[in-house]
Design a binder for these strands. Structure first.
Lengths: 344, 344
DNA sequence: GCCGCTTCTGGGAGCGCTCCCGACATCATC
DNA sequence: GATGATGTCGGGAGCGCTCCCAGAAGCGGC
């Protein structure tokens, strides 16, 4: 039995290679009856074009890469990445692209990315996450000429990026806490090299200042986006007696909650706690977390679409897309409505 | 400037395409001086062979796939996968293979695997994890003829697999608890469709029975490898007053710990708790967890090596490799040595 | 100095597909 | 009925590499 190739499919359908190719690639200019015939043969034989041959002859591989700039442990313990990958993976399927995840944490693996992945033309483009300001990787990618989009922030406006509206998110938190009459508002931030963290911080400070209640620098502690880090940060904060703590992620907020509870603080009466993300830990914590909702999964799918746009139409200028954020109020900032009342 | 191809490199080095190819692929039969000359050109120009062309002309893509049979959330929240992926990724780098991660959770994405990944000859082989007994995927893969290895258990001996020695691990736990004089030994298992869970359970039961202290079926609760699941399972268990609980993973053990502590039980005095894996949550929990250490990262690298063996030498019969497990005793089963004594 | 051997090198023939262009048929138009 | 526009189809020419084999070069032995 001969090998199953385009040629063979064409032969079986009684058409030429070219016509079979047109049908399989959904191009028009083929009479419906002939199209049908080819499609039937494809169905019957289960023909699938050879990826490498396609990639060599056409000019693209239909493989998109996802490069995450974090250690494996960090990636595989963060619900944020779960949601993001979910969104990216789904969008790839929708657009008939294969997603390939590249992990590179050690410096050595780092070196490999340009050589082994980019120069070999293995991927058509890259979604890159968790970069920090002035990340050399970004520069490297720009140099290499490969299309890519960043999930997060970039200073260079000629690079496409997707992100949540961090500014608005932080401002909403400030507004909410002020409206609750909190006066000793603390923050547990992410590392300042993270652009998301510094943007949230700046926006938060500004919102407080505008409202005439500027932030006390003593009430700001930098943590590392982990639960344990936030737990430790909160212990530091306790002596300063804050009446509200804004943690820059839900995971960190969970650590904040734990530290406060162990110290005997009532939430939200003594201290209001607010997170960021609205990912699984938020609604399940006790008490449920007031948090800034961002659409992480959508962020992923938008990133893929933006990347495909860049690949297919390099002439379109780069652009940045910010997805809306909104505040989700739960019991960690506002006492439940039944407090002091009877269940109806 | 002409495109950088093998042809061009050969031209610059003053040799033929074939010779350049030999040098780049590390084959011998090339005079050292000529080899040097080619290598210099490669270095200078930064030439990297085109992946698709290689893949088409040779018969392999140098891409290995990792297929994880779980939802994205599960994968991205489990330290086990972090370690496993780490091992696999490292081994791929060592062997100059590109790792591609395929996520497919929905039924629709499932369908894609055979067609889009296997038939296209995109990957040379697959590492498959988290299969369950009689998983149709395994059958599909066997049918398709693509080389693959399973991380975990398989009934079919003609399939290569890598796993920890679960039997020994479970037996060690039984032995340890018995030696501590525990009599009401409970287990919080994983789902019984998981082969690892059922093997651990069987081995554990057998070990207890052999020691003349058969397991009380009332003291066995099935959970789902999550912390919350184990928390709930333990609450069920509390009324039966166990004096030891063996959880089938460290994450679950953490849930067990939490439930016991909330119920006011002292650990290990009232209840000894033992986990499985010895991954990050184990040593950091309070109290630190006695657990069965398995070398997850090594499991990953061995899987890759076994896969490469199958790809390169299909004639070698399939084999199963079991990596040793050992007991790591910490404070969750044995009170710290300083209890009742003075620090020296 | 010639033969036969080994060691090294070069060129041809694909791998399976896409893309381009020319051939052909069909139909409307004058 | 000749002409051109329009719509379909087929074949050739690669994409950049690997593999195979033939041929060149170098060497010792007679």
């Amino acid at each position: 039995m001969p090998k199953l190739t385009l040629e063979r499919v064409a032969e079986l359908a009684g058409v030429s290679r070219s016509t079979a190719s047109r049908v399989i690639n959904g191009q028009d200019g083929v009479r419906p009856e002939i199209r049908r015939r080819v499609l039937d043969v494809v169905e019957l034989t289960g023909f699938v074009p050879h990826a490498a041959a396609r990639s060599l002859a056409g000019q693209h591989s239909r493989i998109l890469g996802l490069a995450i700039r974090q250690t494996t442990e960090q990636v595989f313990s963060d619900p944020y990445f779960a949601a993001l990958v979910q969104g990216i993976s789904g969008a790839c399927n929708d657009h008939d692209q294969t997603l390939s995840l590249f992990l590179f944490q050690s410096a050595a693996e780092h070196e490999h990315l340009p050589a082994r992945v980019l120069r070999t033309k293995l991927v058509d483009g890259l979604v890159v996450t968790a970069t920090f300001s002035d990340d050399p990787l970004v520069w490297q990618l720009t140099e290499s000429g490969i299309p890519f989009v960043i999930v997060g922030e970039v200073s260079n406006p000629h690079i496409s990026s997707v992100d949540a509206d961090n500014q608005n998110g932080a401002a909403l938190v400030a507004e909410h806490l002020l409206s609750l009459g909190r006066t000793r508002i603390a923050t547990v931030t992410g590392p300042m090299r993270s652009a998301a963290a510094s943007t949230r911080r700046m926006a938060f400070e500004r919102a407080l200042a505008v409202a005439g209640q500027p932030m006390d620098p003593e009430l700001v502690v930098e943590a590392d986006f982990t639960e344990d880090g936030a737990y430790a940060a909160t212990q530091q904060l306790l002596v300063r007696a804050p009446d509200a703590i804004f943690a820059f992620s839900d995971r960190m907020a969970v650590g904040v909650l734990r530290a406060l509870q162990e110290a005997g603080r009532r939430i939200p009466e003594d201290v209001a706690v607010i997170g960021f993300d609205d990912l699984p830990p938020a609604a399940d914590s006790r008490p449920p977390l007031t948090t800034v909702r961002q659409e992480v999964e959508q962020t992923g799918s938008v990133a893929v679409e933006l990347l495909l746009e860049r690949i297919r139409s390099p002439e379109i200028p780069a652009r940045r897309i910010e997805l809306p954020t909104r505040l989700v109020v739960r019991a960690s900032s506002v006492a439940s409505q039944q407090v002091g009342g009877q269940p109806s």
